[in-house]
């Protein structure tokens, strides 16, 4: 099962597409996966809370 994996498609010198290189890089994905919710959810959310006005 483990010995069937050698690639058959594409000549060895053919460049790996950029998207595939991204998906093969767990640490880049880790960065994106933490940065995305940190900015869009946490930071944006906390900014909204900090802008709530005082009761008139």
């Amino acid at each position: 099962m483990s010995d069937q994996s050698t690639g058959s498609g594409g000549a060895p010198e053919e460049r790996v597409p950029a998207m595939q290189r991204l998906l093969d890089n767990p640490f880049l994905l880790l960065f994106m996966g933490v940065a995305s919710p940190a900015v869009l959810y946490l930071i944006w959310g906390v900014m909204e809370l900090s802008q709530i006005p005082l009761s008139p």
Binding site: G33, S36, P37, L40, Y41, W44, G45, E48, L49
Partner: peptide, 26 residues
Amino acid sequence: ILFLQLASAHHLLVEPGVSSEWKIFN
């Protein structure tokens, strides 16, 4: 990886103080 975690906002949809923009996007 990019977007699933935004759904944490599901728990804040009827909360005071967070805008509809934030709520809808997240």
